[in-house]
Design a protein around this nucleic acid. Structure first.
Length: 647
RNA sequence: GCUGUUGUAGCUCAGAGGUAGAGCACUUCCUUGGUAAGGAAGAGGUCACGGGUUCAAUUCCCGUCAACAGCUCCA
């Protein structure tokens, strides 16, 4: 007999070899029908795998990530089985479950899978699923595994097996398809009731650009048809939040082929929004002891040879600008650090001067590969809310933590809740990708890790994600469709101060090297605005939105009164416009609701007689009548309250 | 950059081997209205660009450019 401990702490006794499914059955038949996977001692298992020792158990229904994972992983195998039948000779790469669904990377040889083929594959999958085939787990030796897959010409699988340790290898078979797989899986395919293959795309084998590009088929499945329908509706709604769509509708920004790809044009309303964000950050930075600086958009090529950027990125960048003068070369600046280092060097520095914090909204140009460009989130010309902090080594951690505070303030002010932090360190197996001494790298990495510990920040550590000159702490936010974007970033750098020979005089009257922190709380204005648009669906907070109030006269007879109120409000810095079109009030309300202007003031005969306005809040309907002054002060208060919180 | 898809009016999209359509937006006129689309008329397109096939190409084929999804990359 074995003892099984449940999440509530209760313990039950079962026969040795009992499965998770049998445990579920012992509780209720309903649970047994719905359970898809189980966690045995912190490891997720198939519900049909016999348990041979005392353990803790957790049973997972579809709502749990663990169950979804098994569900979609099994779906990937099901799709593989379908592909094997439809495209004989297909070789299989990997086919994991992902955040929403699954994919499988396959090599179909000469056959090409097109978007239009997805329906056929779906149908095949449905047909196979209804066969209710069970998934059979088998543990096999490395030699047997290699032989099995080699016999089937599965070179990708063999490559994977070669990297595995003998004794840890298992396969799963469903119907006619056997796959190298760790599991866990569903008991059988009958639970898969709704299937949607969402996309087909290319993906390099093992994520390596130098290797073959396989065909990746993406899909998602559900235990109920209704769940799939709901998912598809949700995806449609997410698309409505796309910043590219809202940016066009609200006339915030645009692109022009004549100007060039990836070069955003900020329209008046977008510029108003962005400038307000910049002013907001400037206010905070002033409080934190930053000084604004300004530098040119170009600089001599030598600057980036000194920094090391040219050696690393030069040939993949916008090429040098030549001048009529023989041999003169300038670069569009891809970052601001060298300029700021030169500002540091203008005067000799004492240890008493540090820390020095130079901030600049610096526009930079990077030649991103054409396939990387994406709305405002990935562009070729963008403005970093950049700053460089030069400090003594003993000030490093305090300065680092202060930057974390700024980022937290900003995320809080804009109601970003679901951000993630990531510590990006060197790849220890690939040190030649980086510049600088081991000693400096270790100091930098330690400073970041310790700062996070000090602030109790739960950051995920990623090896190999560091910049080539230093480690960083990045703040990531998801867009409407769940894609992760890096916004804020903080980087510790011992290398540039050396390369630019930055110095300060210490209290020992000796020359010392300062440490440098690169930081950008927004990341870039472009990307931040993009994510903000998706986050708010274009309904920006009152203090930030380009137009705060729109006045809607009932008829043209009241246009003069509307203009009068607009003047009064604008004089009090309440950004007000008038919709003086010859349209009925219902129409004006509809159009301005869609423009997401926070307040609509409806004015007609009644209001004009009494110096009043009828207030309507965007998305919230009629709020009744107010005196003009009363409305003005309530708006001002609402804005001030927010600003006072952070200044 | 790679794989796939797409490119028709400012926007969203129909369409067909015989040189183009809708709705919205725009202009003018009528209407002067009370909380999410009033009515009428009009203007607007080298069907992304360059080749080829054809009596004839915006439609079929090839190339280029751009956009979209994914991969790779991201100082």
């Amino acid at each position: 007999m074995i003892n099984v401990t449940f999440p509530d702490g209760s313990v039950r006794e079962y026969a040795n070899g009992t499965t998770g499914l049998q445990v579920a059955e012992s509780i209720s038949t309903r649970l047994a029908q719905e359970v898809l996977a189980c966690t045995i001692n912190d490891e997720v298992w198939d519900i049909t795998r016999p348990i041979n020792e005392d353990c803790s158990i957790k049973l997972h229904k579809f709502e749990d990530e663990e169950a979804k994972h098994a569900f979609w992983h099994t779906s990937a195998h099901l799709m593989a089985e379908a592909l094997q039948e439809l495209y004989p000779g297909t070789q299989f790469g990997i086919g994991p479950a992902i955040e929403n669904g699954f994919y499988y990377d396959v090599d179909t040889g000469d056959a090409v899978i097109k978007d239009s083929d997805l329906a056929t594959i779906e149908n095949k999958m449905m047909q196979l699923a209804s066969q209710k085939n069970t998934l059979e787990r088998k543990e096999i030796s490395k030699a047997d595994a290699l032989k099995y897959f080699a016999d089937r010409n599965e070179s990708y699988k063999c490559e994977l097996i070669n990297d595995l340790e003998d004794g840890t290898i298992s396969t799963y078979t469903v119907g006619t398809f056997t796959d190298l797989c760790r599991g866990p899986h569903l008991q059988d395919t009958a639970k898969i009731k709704a299937i949607k293959l969402t996309a087909v795309a290319g993906a390099y084998w093992r994520g390596d650009e130098s290797r073959k590009m396989l065909t990746r088929v993406y899909g998602i499945t559900f235990p109920k048809k209704k769940m799939l329908d709901e998912y598809l509706v949700m995806m449609e709604e997410a698309k409505q939040r796309d910043h590219r769509k809202i940016g066009r509708e609200l006339e915030l920004f645009a692109f022009s082929q004549a100007v060039g790809q990836g070069l955003p044009l900020w329209l008046p309303r977008g510029t108003a929004l962005r400038s307000r964000l910049e002013d907001f950050l400037k206010g905070i930075q002033k409080r934190f002891g930053y000084q604004q600086v300004m530098t040119p958009h170009i600089g001599q090529k030598e600057l980036w040879e000194t920094s090391g950027h040219y050696a690393k990125y030069g040939k993949d960048s916008f090429q040098p600008i030549n001048t009529p003068q023989e041999g003169e070369e300038f670069l569009l600046k891809p970052m601001n650090c060298p300029h700021h280092c030169e500002i540091y060097k203008v005067t000799p520095k004492s240890y008493k001067d540090l820390p020095i914090r130079y901030a600049e909204f610096g526009t930079v140009y990077r030649y991103e590969q054409s396939g990387e460009l994406h709305g405002l989130t990935r562009v070729r010309g963008f403005t970093q809310d950049d700053a460089h902090i030069f400090c003594r080594p003993d000030q490093l951690k305090e300065e680092f933590v202060k930057v974390m505070d700024i980022i937290t303030i900003i995320f809080k002010a804009l109601n970003f809740e679901n951000w993630e932090a990531q510590i990006s360190l060197r790849d220890p197996n690939n040190k030649e990708k980086y510049i600088g001494s081991d000693d400096n790298w270790e100091k930098s990495e330690r400073a970041i890790i310790e700062s996070c510990e000090e602030k109790g920040l739960n950051a995920k550590v990623e090896l190999g994600e560091a910049a080539f000159y230093g480690p960083k702490l990045d703040f990531m936010v998801k867009d409407a469709l769940g894609r992760r974007w890096q916004l804020g970033t903080i980087q510790v750098d011992y290398n540039l101060p050396e390369r630019f020979e930055l110095e300060y005089t210490g209290d020992d009257n000796q020359k010392h090297r300062p440490v440098m922190i690169h930081r950008a709380p927004f990341g870039s204005m472009e990307r931040f605005v993009a994510v903000l648009i998706e986050h708010t669906a274009g309904k920006f907070p009152l203090w930030l939105t380009p137009d705060q109030v729109v006045i809607l006269p009932i008829s043209e007879k009241f246009n003069d009164y509307a203009e009068k109120i607009a003047d009064i409000l604008n004089q009090q810095d309440i950004r007000t416009i008038v919709d003086d079109r010859n349209e009925k009030i219902g129409r004006k309300i509809r159009d301005n609701e869609l423009k997401r202007i926070p307040y609509m003031l409806i004015v007609g005969e009644k209001e004009a007689e009494n110096d009043e306005v009828a207030v309507r809040k965007q998305g919230d309907g009629d709020k009744g009548t107010m005196k003009i002054d009363e409305f003005a002060s309530s708006v001002s208060e609402e804005v001030e309250k927010m600003m006072n919180q952070y200044n």
